[in-house]
C-alpha cells in the first residue's frame, strides 16, 4: 500500500489494553463480554490499568480475572465487597472494583454489599443482573421476575411462596455512604453507550474519593433463558425493564458539572 493510503487509515475499534487477548468462556449472545469491554475501555480512558485491582466473584464471571489485563483476586461467593474493602484499606491509592452477578451480590452477598455501601467504602461495584443463576444452570435468583420460569421455579416464580425480586440499585441508593447508584441496560447500542458513561462516572467517583459507587447492568442469559440472542435482548427490553427501570437512583450532587 502506498504512503498516502496508509495515512488515511485510522484505527476506529480495537481491543482495549485492559482486556487480555484470550477467548472467554461466555455463551454466544451473553452480555458479559459487552460489560467486560465497557469496564476495560473506562480503565483505559482513565489510564488506571496499572493501578487497578479487580475482585472476581462466584458465578459465570468467576473467571473475570482471566479476561481483564489488571491485577485480580477471586472472592468467595458474595464476599467480593468485603475483600475489596480489605484491599482498598491497605492500598487506598489503587482503583478497586468488584464484578458480581445477581446471585452473588443480591442473594448470598447482600450483607457484604450493603455494609460496604453503608460504610461509604471507596470501591466500585459492577453488578450484572440477568435474572437467574447462570453458572449453575439457570436457577431462580433474587432478581428472577414474578412468573419467570427457571429450573428451580419450573412453574414460574410464585411471589406467594418465593417472594419478590430484589431491586438492588434502588436499595443501595438509600444508603448515605453510596455516592452513585444507577441502573443501565446492555440490550441495544444506545443503552450500551449510556452504560459506558455510567461506568466511567462510577470509577470517577472512586478516583475522587467520593465513596461507594455501583452500576447495575441489565444483561441477557440466552442459554438459560432458552432463547436466541436476539429473542433474549427483546425479552430484556420488554419484560425486565418494566420491573427494573433504567435510571439514576443516587447521584452525589458533587458530581454535577463534572465532564469526562
Amino acid at each position: 500500500m502506498d504512503t498516502a493510503q496508509h495515512e488515511l487509515e485510522q484505527v476506529v475499534y480495537q481491543r482495549p489494553e485492559s482486556l487480555m487477548e484470550v477467548d472467554t468462556h461466555y455463551c454466544p449472545g451473553c452480555t458479559h463480554g459487552v460489560a467486560h469491554r465497557l469496564v476495560a475501555e473506562v480503565l483505559d480512558e482513565m489510564q488506571v490499568r496499572q493501578r487497578t485491582i479487580g475482585v472476581a466473584s462466584v458465578g459465570c464471571s468467576v473467571f473475570a480475572y482471566n479476561y481483564f489485563n489488571t491485577d485480580f483476586v477471586q472472592a468467595p461467593h458474595g464476599r467480593a465487597p468485603a475483600m475489596a474493602t480489605g484491599i482498598k484499606r491497605c492500598l487506598p491509592d489503587r482503583i478497586v472494583f468488584t464484578y458480581q452477578g445477581d446471585g452473588d451480590m443480591a442473594s448470598i452477598g447482600m450483607g457484604e454489599v450493603v455494609a460496604a455501601a453503608a460504610r461509604g467504602e471507596n470501591i466500585t461495584v459492577v453488578f450484572i443482573n440477568n435474572a437467574n443463576y447462570g453458572m449453575t444452570g439457570g436457577q431462580m435468583a433474587p432478581t428472577t421476575l414474578p412468573g419467570q420460569k427457571t429450573t428451580s421455579s419450573p412453574n414460574g416464580r410464585d411471589v406467594e411462596t418465593q417472594g419478590f425480586p430484589m431491586q438492588a440499585a434502588e436499595l443501595l441508593a438509600t444508603l448515605e455512604g453510596t455516592s452513585y447508584s444507577v441502573r443501565r441496560s446492555l440490550h441495544d447500542p444506545k443503552n450500551v453507550r449510556m452504560a459506558k458513561k455510567a461506568l466511567r462516572t462510577a470509577f470517577e467517583v472512586q478516583a475522587r474519593g467520593m465513596g461507594f459507587s455501583i452500576v447495575e447492568l441489565l444483561s441477557v442469559c440466552p442459554t438459560n433463558w432458552g432463547m436466541t440472542p436476539l429473542q433474549s435482548l427483546k425479552w430484556l427490553e420488554e419484560a425486565m425493564i418494566p420491573f427494573y427501570p433504567i435510571g439514576d437512583y443516587k447521584v452525589n450532587p458533587a458530581l454535577a458539572g463534572l465532564r469526562f
Binding site: A75, A82, G86, I87
Partner: peptide, 8 residues
Amino acid sequence: NMVYGAAC
C-alpha cells in the same frame, strides 16, 4: 474476607 483481601 477483608482479611483475605488485605492479605492478598
